Simulated assay, not measured.
Amino acid sequence: MKLKELEMFLQDIEGFRQPKIQYEQYNTGHHIGARMLFSMNSFDDIEHKSILDLGIGCGRLGIGCAFLGASYVLGIDIDSDALAQCAENCSTIRDDSEDESMLTNLDLIQGDICDDQFCSKLNQRFQVVVMNPPFGTKNNKGIDMLFLKRGIDVALESVYSLHKTSTREHILKKCADWRVKKVEILAQLRYDLPNSYVFHKKRSKDIEVDFYRIEK
């Protein structure tokens, strides 16, 4: 699938109807999401791979991976409303000749990745982990790094993640501490953050983010 076609596909996946600030819910834009998936594909990290989407939200990344031929995708999210929206989005991905969803390779479970007990029960390991974690800029300081560490712990091969460019030095240091094999910043992107909450004063805001590939 060409990049433009991938963007169009992701654009049709509905985002959060009522985002929740306590979870820092922001949609993964179809522009950034398409570039993430396109890059993963270029490393042969989607097709025939088992993939975990940490914080799947409404599903743009996880659904994209399933649609592009992952052998299996598991999406985890703390929010039951987001999972319901994701399931609804999955149901709309259909072949013209079929009434049922094409995505038989994607499952969803509710869970809190901050909960050690929940994570200890997640005993299945995945070849690839993908995420667009909370940035930890409101009341969740450090949650971006917790997401990243959980992803690295469970991945067998690679982790793909978005993080604010301002945290680059810290992330590179932590990855060195965690003794990963290789860290690459595949791109520096502009995350278009729309006016989603009452405290947002501007119509939208661009946030500089780094797109990481971490090899185990």
Rank of each mutant, 00 (worst) to 15 (best):
L162N: 06
R150Q: 02
H163M: 09
K141S: 04
D112A: 09
D206G: 09
Q127E: 15
K4Y: 15
S39A: 12
E5L: 13
D115L: 00
I152R: 00
G142Y: 07
E5C: 06
A187Q: 13
N89Q: 04
L37Q: 03
R179W: 05
E100K: 10
L3T: 04
S158M: 05
F126W: 13
C119P: 03
D81E: 10
P133H: 07
G111V: 03
D177C: 03
K149Q: 07
E88K: 03
L172A: 00
E157N: 07
N41I: 14
I56E: 06
Q11M: 14
I113M: 04
S50I: 02
E14R: 01
M1N: 08
H200Q: 06
E215R: 03
I46V: 05
P133E: 12
Q110R: 14
Y72L: 04
Q117I: 03
Q110L: 09
H30C: 04
N27W: 15
A70I: 02
I21N: 11
I113P: 09
I78T: 10
G33M: 00
V183M: 01
E47P: 08
Q117R: 02
L172W: 08
H48F: 02
D144M: 09
K174C: 11
L61F: 09
D12G: 14
F43R: 00
D95E: 08
Y23A: 04
H170S: 10
I152S: 00
K121G: 13
Q11P: 01
E100V: 07
E157C: 02
V129S: 07
G62Q: 00
V183G: 04
P194F: 12
C86T: 02
Q124L: 12
M1C: 02
L6R: 07
A34P: 09
Y26C: 04
K138V: 13
L52R: 05
H48I: 07
D115E: 07
A34V: 04
V183K: 01
H163R: 00
P194G: 15
D99S: 11
A70L: 03
I109Q: 14
K202C: 02
T137V: 15
G111E: 05
M36A: 02
Q85T: 08
L189H: 12
L146W: 10
L186H: 08
S71C: 10
I63T: 09
I56K: 00
D95S: 02
D81T: 04
L74Q: 10
V128I: 14
V183P: 06
L106P: 07
A84D: 10
H170A: 04
D116K: 02
G33V: 05
G15S: 11
F147M: 08
N123G: 08
S158A: 15
S50A: 01
T28M: 00
C90V: 13
L172K: 10
Y197N: 09
K164I: 05
N41T: 15
F43Q: 13
L54H: 08
Q127H: 15
A187F: 05
R179C: 05
Q11H: 15
G142C: 03
G75M: 12
G136I: 11
T165F: 06
E24A: 06
L54Q: 06
L146V: 10
S97L: 04
M8R: 14
M145Y: 14
H31Q: 13
L189M: 13
I13M: 07
K49I: 07
S71D: 14
R203N: 13
L172M: 06
Y212A: 03
Q18L: 06
F118S: 00
N139D: 14
D81I: 01
G33Y: 12
I13G: 12
